[in-house]
Design a binder for these strands. Structure first.
Lengths: 144, 144
DNA sequence: AGCTTTTGCTTCGAGGCTCGAAACAATGGA
DNA sequence: TCCATTGTTTCGAGCCTCGAAGCAAAAGCT
């Protein structure tokens, strides 16, 4: 039982996550976004085929009504648009607008600038990623 | 420019955090707790002197009104109690009840069992913690 | 084809979370 | 003593998340 080491790592993960969030809050507010809506924007890779609501809900670990709400926030801000999936007319896919593309790129840049993870060197980041990949392995993480 | 590696690490951090949360949700619900209230419980070490509201707000990256709300949730569930700090009668410290101690220990155990970080070996965890410590260290006095 | 079940999304209502502004008492300094 | 500051709470607003119910399209069955 290595409870102590594991506890420290879990705590550190929480800490880094919260700290990153705190540091980008101001930039998000500049676009009337919040952590929840930004995560949704992040989870859409504009260079991949647009994801359906269902896929997005899985990526964001939330349920369908919640995703409807988040999607409304993004469409009201002109960052994404709903489109009917021609292959299944029940399904709606989220298409990023040009403005959404811009805002996403800008905020992603800001996040990488501000995150405390940025203090690590390239080789340290690779080391870290090797370990984290093993943790995440089983299922598929969010894109980009 | 190591943007790609950094992006992957930030994404992985988010992913691990969300996945851990999802996996303990059921256990939390068993005590009528949520991620927010559980983090507050986690942030009180029952073997240390009880922290003040102000200290707790810093630990949880939230503001004073928010912490008042969270504290009310915990007191209503009989997990912590407010006490006046004798050295400064404006300040309230959060004292964990015996029940709070039990619930905290149980949920901490559950978290360590369920977190995907648990797949790592002891030596991998130490490696990981070495890297994360560098990230969290407030020792970045003069940057850029 | 017709009928039923399942699936993807939305609507609705309730409750939890988070914040800024304002209020209050205790503290500390001039 | 008087005034500014500090730690907390109250209030009101808006955001987030969920379960239940509803609707339309798709899939399955006979």
């Amino acid at each position: 039982m290595t409870a102590h080491e594991l506890t420290a790592v879990v705590t550190a993960t929480y800490e880094i996550w919260m700290r990153t969030n705190a540091l980008i809050m101001e930039a998000l507010a500049g676009h009337r976004l919040t952590p929840a809506t930004f995560q949704a924007l992040w989870a859409i890779d504009p260079d991949e085929p647009p994801p359906s609501m269902k896929v997005m809900a899985e990526r964001l670990y939330c349920n369908a009504p919640n995703l409807t709400f988040i999607t409304n926030q993004l469409t009201e801000r002109g960052l994404v648009e709903r489109a009917v999936d021609p292959s299944d007319r029940r399904s709606r896919v989220l298409v990023m607008t040009p403005k959404g593309r811009e805002v996403r790129a800008e905020l992603l840049r800001t996040t990488l600038e501000k995150t405390p993870l940025g203090v690590l060197s390239e080789s340290e980041l690779r080391q870290l990623m090797t370990l984290l990949s093993r943790v995440i392995q089983p299922t598929t993480p969010i894109s980009s």
